[in-house]
Nucleic acid binder design. Structure first.
Lengths: 203, 203, 203, 203
DNA sequence: AATGAATGAGCCTTCATTCAT
DNA sequence: AATGAATGAAGGCTCATTCAT
């Protein structure tokens, strides 16, 4: 009979090498199905099959479908954060911003559909806090806005939200439209950001 | 199992007054479930029940679940377009842009969750072309960009996409965060747009 | 995904004659599987198949496996209670007691294994209150103990519990051993009861 | 799915001291889960975990789930029998009976839920013969009935069954109701037994 | 001997859709 | 036109058992 729904945290850490591989295969299979067939086709049986693993193994590591999705989100977030964190070392605020955008664009264009679907899924309330959304990105962005060479914002937290949204959205939308010119995309996103930041004149 | 729906178009146009009402009830029930319980709870049986109509009747008007969703999207789009169209009569490009944004914000804040979910669903490939996405809005926006008082854009189609995305995204995100101050939101969105449009000069 | 567990009450009352039949078939199939193959083989798919009904139909009327079991318990209890109730009209307490025991024995020997399994399942805490266990029988028994021709008991509620247990147990055990002589069984059970009631004097 | 267990007998006798301990731990874990969470939660993986043993080890000692259950039943039966056997040495039949009942009550009140669940499981056909049910108790009871100070029974085997059932049932039911006064329970059970035995008048 | 990763049949339940009335 | 009973494929998840290490 149906049991109460499981947690969203992974069930057990794989320790033996074989288990580590299995765990990784499952996550990668999940990623592939998500990007290739969409969220509608994302189901645990298919993921297990694609991973070349039994359904039972999947449930050894993930307590449920949601948890699998969350783990995948975390994986992607970790990959991205490692890249974006270097932005802090940029010499100016504008350079740091450029670095952040570059990282976002790079990450997006690597697996566009996957990134977009994850963005969408992350907006779901049940999942939201579990992944702490784009928190790392958000923190970096927030810190960058205080850099002295960037125009001071009346409401920097709001500006952080807005800028974060703009980056995510433009970049997602570009992925959907199939753009693949990273530089051009970066330039446009940066343009939008600086427009927003410098904009007080227009507002 | 579910066979592929014969089509995404409504099955038959309701002509008799009672049928028109039934049709509208079903759509409204769909909207309420979507915004109240999310896409996960959106199923035909529930919609029928909420509409006070038998499941059989629902299938008289809509060939399937997808078609119901598409019809709802069209309804929302039509409501919005009627409002946005008046922008064309504004005396300046900036005024027209302001009108468009105002319409978007108004529409969004009216039923924020519904609007956001529809935006998300519209991004799904199967549905995409069927609704011709934000086409009306896009056309209005595109035309506005050619107004003489707005800075000429090197690639106006691209700019149209970007601006459209920015509006949609910012407005959706605001809805998610529960903002309800329409004027403030309009101002911020307009700021972002003008920042984007005027930006090249500043850079 | 697994949803929260459903209630234990039937989902919807069958109204159309066809539905009434379906409902009854399902319950009877459940009874047959229970008595024929035991609780271990009792699963919704098998019940539906045995009932000659789709699994979906089963779930139209019963929100889950437990609920099906509970409904079956209620059906059996109702059948038995109707029979036992007539005991109240007996002219003496001893006669009433004899009537109650006769009803219990009759009910038990009709479908011994079914009755026994239901007794066992009724003891499970989740189900307990839902069926209000042998409450009808218990009430009748309790009332009977107050009849003037029966020896007064120091603790009549306790005596009611004990006597009820004795009847149930002896009768279940007899069913398990395959006894089928109703009269003999009645006599022995009555013997045990009167022994218990009259006992204090002898001790 | 699970294949039929090769046998219900323990797979191998533990001989080394450590193995004896492991064996005992597993049984005790099984007992704890049974009484604490019920038969529904009783599964081999959980038992192994609770016993602090790998699932593989569990299967070294027990060929399957059923066998584990049977071994537990035997353990409980052995504990009880050792206690009950002393009844034979009582000077009178009535005293022997009292001793038997006292042993049964003692055993029951020690771990009431465990005892009850085992009684229920023992009634299952597959397990029945394997444990030879309450045979020891039954033999002792049977022998006691022939003692000269007890009223002769027309059908002593039947009486043995009935009396055994009465003891088991009353005592189980008391456990379920949470009674913990051993003396009072003994007195009531004895009352019922003597009532039954002396009862010829009523029969 | 012990471990624990892996397996997969089986069972519960939902929901899109059909069709007899 | 409407009703709602019925269908059954699909998908989530568990747990008894095996087997490579």
């Amino acid at each position: 009979m149906a049991r109460p729904p499981s947690s969203l945290r992974p069930r057990k850490k794989p320790v033996q090498p074989r288990a580590v591989e299995t765990y990784a295969w499952i996550l990668e299979a999940a990623a592939q199905i998500l990007e290739g067939q969409g969220i509608g086709a994302f189901n645990t049986n298919l993921v297990a099959e694609r991973a070349g693993v039994s359904i039972g193994s999947l449930y050894q590591y993930f307590p449920g479908k949601q948890a699998l999705l969350v783990a995948l989100m975390r994986r992607e977030k970790a990959r991205f954060s490692a890249d974006a964190a270097a932005a802090q070392e940029a010499s100016s605020g504008r350079a740091a911003l450029a670095h952040l955008v570059a990282a976002a664009v790079r990450h997006q264009l690597e697996r566009p559909e996957l990134a977009r679907l994850i963005d969408v899924e992350e907006a779901r309330p049940e999942v939201r806090q579990e992944v702490e959304s784009a928190s790392d990105f958000r923190k970096l962005l927030r810190a960058t806005l205080d850099r002295p060479d960037l125009p001071p914002q009346p409401n920097p937290d709001r500006a952080t939200d807005d800028l974060g949204d703009i980056v995510r959205l433009l970049v997602d939308a570009a992925g959907v439209r199939g753009e693949s010119d990273a530089e051009a995309l970066e330039r446009r996103v940066l343009g939008a950001l600086f427009g927003y930041l410098d904009g007080p004149a227009a507002r």
